[in-house]
Nucleic acid binder design. Structure first.
Lengths: 226, 226
DNA sequence: GTCGACGATGAGAATTTTCGGCATGGCCAT
DNA sequence: ATGGCCATGCCGAAAATTCTCATCGTCGAC
């Protein structure tokens, strides 16, 4: 019966999350700010923390940094605004997953379960054969991609990049990460190359009426809402 | 002080190997045929077996199969004729390394050490940054290859294939294995493609005076003696 | 508003992949 | 053994994809 610590300054959110998590059999603790979070973490030793990023005084990133000094407790971030989380995710914080508001409690519980299932390790990819995000669908086994009903034909590299983006929609991937995910040899290609592939990927998706790949200036690319 | 069991029907070979291994600090046992090998193995519990393939009555492959029923003792095979070992290696016997006669005792000792160092596991690739085989040298970090003194410039795929072959010189790799080792997506390219890459790889090595990549009809490619 | 850094774009070079035809090896019947 | 036959590998060339480079546009910090 894993124990979850909810950290958010909004009592309403805490309430909703507590309800959802308890219904699923988790035992739940709460904290309303960063200082309280560290305190409760020390006292209750939760198996996972649900952590809001935007909080007065000590925000989520700072809590995360302090926790990471001594602990590997998995963290699922809550982000208020979509573009806000972008920067943070670029910075290799030790977060394990990320949910942007507004989100369904059901989704959060699913993420929490997933993180716990794959163990403490921060960066493990759930290699499901079919990935979906909005109208975008990718079948890694059959090597095919659809936007709504129309199939989009991609090359290997384009496919690799999209698959990576799709594993964590919204997360901003640096060019280096994208290269690493698509090739065995990381040290071979220049990162300008990623631009080229993203360009053609975008072109093909655009031809199908989609435009889900977004640029995050100074960091990399991410999959936006579809 | 690891114990090695030498199995070979040729007393001269046993003598040479015993001398080399003992000089290196190993303790050595001997067996002249398959039946004796099983017997000695049960009695002496060696840490590693050096096993000749071609023996009268019960040959090395059969000995290996019987041993593998109950034991994971690492095995280094000795093969008499070069082309003979090819077929056997295709068949995923549980061998840990392979040396073809004529071989230098020094080389065998090196192999034995390597196998022991990387633990019992049969198929662990020591991902050392620098792989060498005869005059052939490959640096996986700097992404460079040499034949003797001359550097050979390879493309990513050529490099990937050579690196794979180099991980177990002499082992015959199927085209599928080579594809799988060089790409993330296995299901994308036809296996004729491997031919093309091997062709260009050979051409480049030939330009440097080498011809180490050998074809094994009906199975795949392997790295021959250099 | 200006400047500097970063991303987009176009074009071309390099690499990878495929395909079809030819050569060769291994196997069977003679 | 010999010759034919089928499977498999090799080669040349073209098509597809990937990668790089130079230039221009845009974003964001000051």
């Amino acid at each position: 019966m894993p124990k979850i610590l909810i950290v958010d300054d909004d009592p309403h959110i805490r309430e909703v999350l507590r309800f959802a998590l308890e219904k699923d059999g988790f035992s739940v603790g709460e904290a309303a700010n960063g200082a309280q979070a560290l305190e409760r973490h020390a006292a209750e030793r939760p198996d996972l923390i649900v952590l809001d990023i935007l909080m007065p005084e000590m925000d989520g990133t700072e809590v995360c940094r302090r926790l990471r000094r001594d602990h590997a407790t998995p963290i699922v971030f809550l982000s208020s605004r979509d573009d806000e989380v972008d920067r943070i995710l670029g910075l290799e914080l030790g977060g394990d997953d990320y949910v942007t508001k507004p989100f369904s409690p059901r989704e959060l519980v699913a993420r929490v379960r997933a993180v716990l299932r794959r163990g403490t390790s921060a960066v493990t990819e759930g290699d499901s054969p079919v990935l979906t995000h909005g109208r975008l669908r990718l079948d890694a086994e059959r090597f095919k991609v659809w936007w709504a009903e129309t199939e989009v034909t991609l090359t290997v590299t384009e496919f690799g990049i999209l698959r990576t983006l799709l594993r964590r929609p919204g997360k901003v991937y640096s060019r280096e990460e994208l290269i690493g995910a698509a090739y065995d040899f990381h040290n071979v290609v220049s990162d300008r190359t990623v631009d080229s592939h993203v360009r053609r990927l975008r072109a093909k998706l655009a031809a199908a009426g989609a435009d889900p790949v977004e640029t995050v200036h100074g960091v990399g690319y991410k999959l936006g809402n579809c």
